[in-house]
């Protein structure tokens, strides 16, 4: 277990990094300790326009999980668009249902396709069991409806992410909500026929071959 002093040292290394290579290394080290007091520093890294460091920070935030959700949700507003994309990736990766509304909005409305893409994937991998039982169905319906809209996005990569999200949602609901699976498969079959992107059609085939039934 890394002690508090060591964590402070790792945080200082991020603050003092004077080249993008040093920043990357410092963020990787900081992300690896998985400690909640590093959350503000990891979130700050998302705005530095250093993709390598941002990837490491997102991994760290996902690893920390639940404690990172509220700070991410608070910091997401008004952030620059690159940082938003990373923050939503982190929220999508954590899968905490408190991020559901943020992900629903981002997947369908965000102007940046990288944000819609991350949110669409995340809508499929919400940790539904963390919701009160009587809220699960409504939340899953919202997620499904959003993903059906997102699967018509003009950007191929967002539609690709929608397929990934639909597959995950189909897996998660296959026992509890058989009707979801029917609807998801029919949407996927339609995309498999009609989508203009070879990559999306290929991902549809993969999803269909992996979904039950």
């Amino acid at each position: 277990m890394t002690d508090t002093l060591q964590v402070q040292k790792l945080i200082r290394a991020v603050d003092e990094a004077d080249s993008s290579a040093k920043l990357l290394e410092a963020v990787q080290n900081l992300a690896a300790v998985r400690r909640s007091e590093t959350i503000p520093n990891l979130i700050a890294t998302l705005g530095y326009n250093n993709p390598g460091a941002a990837v490491a920070a997102v991994d760290g935030l996902i690893g920390i999980g639940e404690p990172a959700v509220q700070p991410l949700l608070e910091l997401i507003d008004g952030y620059n668009y690159g940082a938003r994309a990373w923050a939503i990736r982190a929220l999508a990766g954590i899968g905490d249902p408190r991020a559901l509304n943020t992900l629903l909005d981002a997947a369908t409305n965000d102007f940046a396709f990288s944000v819609r893409r991350a949110a669409a994937k995340g809508l499929g991998t919400i940790q539904w069991h963390k919701l009160p039982l009587d809220e699960v169905y409504h939340a899953q319906v919202q997620s499904l409806e959003a993903l059906l809209v997102v699967s018509q996005d003009p950007e191929w990569v967002v539609r690709y992410a929608a397929v990934v999200g639909l597959q995950a949602l189909g897996m998660a609901t296959s026992v509890s909500q058989a009707a979801f699976l029917t609807q998801i498969c029919s949407q996927l079959q339609q995309m498999g026929q009609q989508d203009g992107s070879v990559a999306v059609r290929a991902r549809v085939q993969m999803a269909l071959s992996q979904l039950p039934g």
Binding site: G192, V198, A199, R201, A202, Q205, M206, S209
Partner: peptide
């Protein structure tokens, strides 16, 4: 890369 794979092995094969 994926498109090249599909061009060699047309869908629905993967």
């Amino acid at each position: 890369l994926l498109e090249y794979q599909v061009s060699q092995n047309p869908l629905p094969e993967l």
